[in-house]
Design a binder for these strands. Sequence first.
RNA 1: CGGGGCGUAGCGCAGCCUGGUAGCGCGUUUGCUUGGGGUGCAAAAGGUCAAGGGUUCAAAUCCCUUCGCCCCGACCA
Length: 569
Amino acid sequence: MRWTDTLIPTLRDDPLEAEIASHKLMLRAGLIRKLAGGLYTFLPLGLRALRKVERIAREEMDRAGALEILMPALQPREIWEQSKRYAVMGETMYRLQDRQKRDLVLGPTHEEVVTDLVSREISSYRQLPKIFYQIQAKFRDEIRPRFGLMRAREFIMKDAYSFDVSMEAADASYQRMYNAYRRIFDRCGLTTRIVEADTGAMGGKLSHEFMALADSGEDGLVECDSCSCAANLERAERGFLPTPLFPDAGESPLVVPTPGARTIEQVAAFFGCEPRRLIKTILYLVKGEPVAVLAPGDREINEHKLARALETADVTMADPRAIETVTGAAVGFAGPVGLQAPIYADTALKGYAGAISGANRTDAHMTRVCLERDVRVAGYLDLCAARDGDPCPRCNGKLREKRGIEVGHVFKLGAKYSDAFGASYVPDDGRRRAMVMGCYGIGVTRTLQAVIEQNHDDKGINWPMSVAPYHAVVLVLNPAHAASLQTAQDLAQNLDASGVETVLDDRNDRPGVKFADADLIGFPLRVVVSERSLAKNSVELKQRTQPSPELVPIADAARSVGDIVHARS
RNA sequence: CGGGGCGUAGCGCAGCCUGGUAGCGCGUUUGCUUGGGGUGCAAAAGGUCAAGGGUUCAAAUCCCUUCGCCCCGACCA
């Protein structure tokens, strides 16, 4: 492909709207353009890269025995009522009406459609197991679209759904998808971690997320530095933390005036102690009722863990008025002693004595607090987020905190949807049973951006061969020089013919412009044709990852390039 | 939705405080030049100053409203 025949609108400056490297680069390299918040057009270069990721996903799904189908993005309201998710999905789902005033939604995911299908078409154990997948646009009215393709309102997802006769069989399907996902991300050139995750709105018991490691990632995770244990911060457990010993542990509580000291920092400074000696008292409304949650002063309560521990989704931080009503004091002076609400404490507080908390009086705190003695704790639960350096819950190792981009998620769903849609089968004993399901998603567009996030330098993108929009660029240094242009054209033609996807940069621009664009776009291979090299009957060949080029005889150039493409694919 | 920031040429920005001629760099077009890391010279095109309303003789500038975009929180692939 000639550069002058396609559209590659590179930008010299970083667009103001982009924050993270991959987003800036996708815009600057001319891969995508924004239509509106969270809505993007794929330009020729971007689409080519996207198709590469799709192809890898498709090949691995096929290899794993999944069947490709294509379901409608536009779906009737009824199936969402049937699964009881019409309400659950809430504002996330785009809703619309047709001219007959029928309610429709734009599918944010396809459990309903696929289970409805399977309930009609499959009825015998002889037809199972089955895994269906599709690669298609999903629509979600995100609270906040962000970072380009990272969190978009319309995005491409590879979603798959497994149907099995038993939990054991479903586990096998899950494992097959799990392994396929590892291969997919591996082939895309991504460094990922697989972590235990929260199942969220999808339901079901167990799930794993595939996290592409990146400092700009939206998700936190921890992994053990010695065993294979890894989890999303939303649910990561910690090992046992020894109880610190504080002075005055045996003494009776004492109320001390602490005017104006509301925050942990202020109180710690006032008493000249370390923050962890403080007992942080946070009030939540659980199903509308106030509940106090205690944590060491240097730790954060994780609402996901809290919600799971209390077995409800209805957990919100109490507003200032509620706090004042329950504690009888201004915000910042809540404490557990004498508090009229159920009190749950993080396990790290077990054995706390000689600690400091709010006194439930404005401008006062309480010292020498002993939880065992002074407070009726309803339960010690794992409520605080794990963090870097915490002990691993499974071994003697330490947890390391990292950030990641959630590129894939696999769920064991059980019979939630098969029950709702009557997706059942007749086993050999003749008594109808619900199918056991799993669902599996890859954010294809997000994966593409994650590849860039992990593979770039200060000059631009550094594509892995497998997802590069083109394998090579042939750069004519001086298009006015007829022999250069001819050699470059012939070479580009030979490369294309041998399966090396090539762009011929035939622009009438200065060399510097072309070098800079080649680096920005990140072609894995660059061939430079110039008068200088032509004098030696050679061209220059350079990989994006290498610092300097090597001279290759013109006659060998196509083969050399082909060998590298082959070796790195 | 809560908190913060921003909307002026394709991109990056100045002008706004203190009202009066819409400007700069890059890009684009034309001609010449140059030809190994964003070349130089010359000329040209390109703007409902986000939108609507108000104040004023006069609004990019002051006031009000709306919309859009970005960042921080809850949601997710």
